[in-house]
Design a protein around this nucleic acid. Sequence first.
DNA 1: AGACTAAGTGAACTCGGTTCGCTTAACAAG
DNA 2: CTTGTTAAGCGAACCGAGTTCACTTAGTCT
Lengths: 242, 242
Amino acid sequence: MDDATPVRAGTAAWWLARTEKADDRQRRRRMLSLDLIADTALSVLDSEGADALTMRRLAHELRCSQAALYRHITSRDELVVVAMDRAVGLGLHAPPEGLGWRQTVEWQAHSFRDFLLAHPGLVAFIRGTERLGPSSLSGMEHSLGQFIAIGLSVREAYATASAFATFVVGSVQFNMGVDTADPDEQRLRRRLYEGLDPQRHPIMVANAEELSRVGSREEFEFGLAALLDAIEARITPRRPGP
Amino acid sequence: MDDATPVRAGTAAWWLARTEKADDRQRRRRMLSLDLIADTALSVLDSEGADALTMRRLAHELRCSQAALYRHITSRDELVVVAMDRAVGLGLHAPPEGLGWRQTVEWQAHSFRDFLLAHPGLVAFIRGTERLGPSSLSGMEHSLGQFIAIGLSVREAYATASAFATFVVGSVQFNMGVDTADPDEQRLRRRLYEGLDPQRHPIMVANAEELSRVGSREEFEFGLAALLDAIEARITPRRPGP
DNA sequence: AGACTAAGTGAACTCGGTTCGCTTAACAAG
DNA sequence: CTTGTTAAGCGAACCGAGTTCACTTAGTCT
């Protein structure tokens, strides 16, 4: 049997296989469906985080047995991938029309970040375009169009869009679970910085107070502006001067 | 008992508590020590990935019982945090002296990325500075110094350094487990792009061939250059024009 | 009506992390 | 040297996760 090849969930091969047999499903109709499972998984994921999403919990929520779930998905890994794409399909919207490219990209970046912050359970599972479903690629498509329209090559556009996605994901992942605006958290961070070896970390010790108050949003805005500036710098030389 | 507060491993509070009682350890000497455990965990992590690192496996490797591990570590979470800091302490080196700021930062970014690629098991556990141990903060300290030296405020320097770290982490995390240079992988990606709905993804369908060949390194270099350019622009706002 | 097959079930199985009560060994004081 | 104290370590369990298996149920198609 040659189809025993272990196809990792979310890979290109996997998505191909899934879309190919998508129509075969739902002929025998019962209650359970892939979408229903994905939606339920998503609601658990959002309300109680990644750890709360267990097969038992999901089965209980759907009032079916655990084993029944395996008729629609082959593993928990796959479940997460499907739920992720569903979330993206539901939660990621196209940017408003009529904005300039810079504002559009900015809008997308913020929108993507807000989306991830709204679904903290998903962040850990995010991977690159190789692991995204069709829904997840829509935002990418839009970015590509924008970047190509302003003069980047297809290749550059892809690298640029990926860089943005990378940065957004990194930003959220990097600051997962820590509320940098929480005064208690700030105080702890200050004490941590102050307690470092002044020989090895002179700056952090000296500026503990100030550093403890820099939030994750500040860092995000800086990086975002930097990427935008870089694009601007890259396309303006080719523009006919004023 | 007020110290029953659940202190999450890796948080500022946790590191403070740990350093405070660090000297109490190792008085009664036996075979096991925190460093030994961390080193062993690391070697398992590096050679066989995050999933292979189980308490049973670790105990077997150290030829002790699982329960013995809990004399030094209170949970698997904590184990990972400790191992991480140990890895950073061992694997992250200071940049060579005498480079300009731009080259230094570039060196650091590449060094950090290479480090993460060399320890793929660690990436999933990376969090922001709030969750880093003293060793992990050394690179940050160096960056801060550089950025302040070239004219950024402490606050800006921190946001900037964080943005770099964020981007590096995001880049590795985003492309975890996918070898973009692998021809098979490229072929699959191309087929995936080609198979998309041309209505919704016209650009990706039309440029499937080209897109499938853009690697993760390309994206990384673009973003890195962008961040560096942004700093340059920020510190030389009004350079006397030619 | 009967064969076929997908959907769903309940009970297991395996393998994680973690806890419990116990033993062992190092040290300090008498 | 003995003895009390305490940290280090042990074996065996416990609990909860993902997954599989043999089986039943209910549509669908001759």
